[in-house]
Simulated assay, not measured.
Amino acid sequence: MKDFFISYTGNDRTWAEWIAWVLEEAQYSVVIQAWDFRVGGNFVLDMHKAIEANRTIAVLSTLYLEKPFPQSEWAAAFAQDPTSANRKLLPVRVENCQPPGLLGQIVYVDVFNCDEVEAQQRLLAAVKDGRMKPDQRPSFPGKPVQREVPEHVPFPGQSNPGQSNPGQSVPAQAPAPKAAIGANTPQPVPVGLTASQKRRLQQKLDALQPELDLRAEKLQQLRKSLAIMVDPATKFQLEKQIQAEEAQLAVLENELDAIEAALAG
């Protein structure tokens, strides 16, 4: 018995074959009309045998939902598992469409409006049994607390040799070339960022933080996809993507650290 039967309409054959290829590449067994229904065979018997697969993947599109024959295919899987306790029916949307009626009550996965690596990762995660817990700890959603360190701290034990009382202390002197700070000398006011500069830096920080979070999430998903990939060529491509994302992530982190340091200064 096969792991999956791919139910699709003729217009979505390319999507169906891509899904079948990804699943077989991940060591699942698949039956699909384009590859397994041969000339001279009995279509009805072949279809009867195909729907006996452990699970049915319905390739959802607007045309799929309109055609009569695909409805009988997903309905056969639904009848075997009406409460979805065994996830016999797995809807996979390949375009923006809304499944009606009973089919609309089953959670689907989208493999469109994303690149191929992400689509493959979504598909393999959807067919995997068990919880969807990631392999690595999620990134901390909060912001790190920056230490506030003053530019200069006067030495509290320095004494004033001009005083009659040797134990009396005076304010510490600033390092050269600054003038000494005495009792009658006003404290210098450090020149910092203007309000306009701080506002622009904060806006840039707010814009970069979501990008950093997205790249960190994408890097995590790429690593997860690499862990389950068996095809050497695809693994090589994933490793290259991971290296590029790590480099971009490091650049963003350095830029954010510099902005936060400037705002805290």
Score class of each variant (00 low, 15 high):
5 F>Q: 07
5 F>M: 07
7 S>H: 06
8 Y>R: 08
11 N>H: 08
14 T>W: 02
17 E>A: 02
18 W>A: 08
23 L>M: 08
26 A>I: 03
27 Q>F: 02
27 Q>L: 10
28 Y>C: 02
30 V>Q: 04
34 A>L: 11
40 G>Y: 06
40 G>V: 05
40 G>K: 02
43 F>N: 01
45 L>C: 06
51 I>F: 13
52 E>S: 13
53 A>E: 06
56 T>M: 02
64 Y>T: 11
69 F>Y: 11
71 Q>C: 08
72 S>T: 10
72 S>L: 13
76 A>S: 15
79 A>Y: 05
79 A>C: 01
83 T>N: 05
83 T>G: 03
85 A>L: 09
85 A>I: 05
86 N>R: 08
88 K>I: 00
89 L>N: 02
91 P>D: 01
96 N>F: 10
96 N>A: 11
104 G>D: 04
104 G>W: 11
110 D>Q: 13
115 D>S: 06
118 E>S: 13
119 A>C: 07
122 R>P: 03
127 V>S: 00
128 K>L: 09
129 D>W: 09
129 D>K: 14
129 D>M: 13
135 D>V: 07
139 S>R: 11
143 K>Q: 15
152 H>G: 06
160 N>P: 07
160 N>S: 14
166 P>H: 01
169 S>R: 06
170 V>Y: 10
170 V>F: 13
173 Q>G: 00
178 K>R: 07
179 A>K: 15
184 N>V: 11
190 P>V: 04
191 V>K: 08
192 G>V: 02
194 T>M: 08
195 A>Y: 12
196 S>G: 10
200 R>Y: 13
201 L>F: 08
201 L>G: 08
205 L>V: 02
207 A>R: 15
210 P>I: 11
211 E>C: 14
215 R>M: 05
216 A>G: 09
221 Q>N: 03
223 R>N: 08
224 K>R: 02
225 S>C: 06
225 S>H: 10
228 I>D: 01
233 A>T: 11
237 Q>G: 14
252 L>I: 09
261 A>P: 01
261 A>H: 06
264 A>G: 02
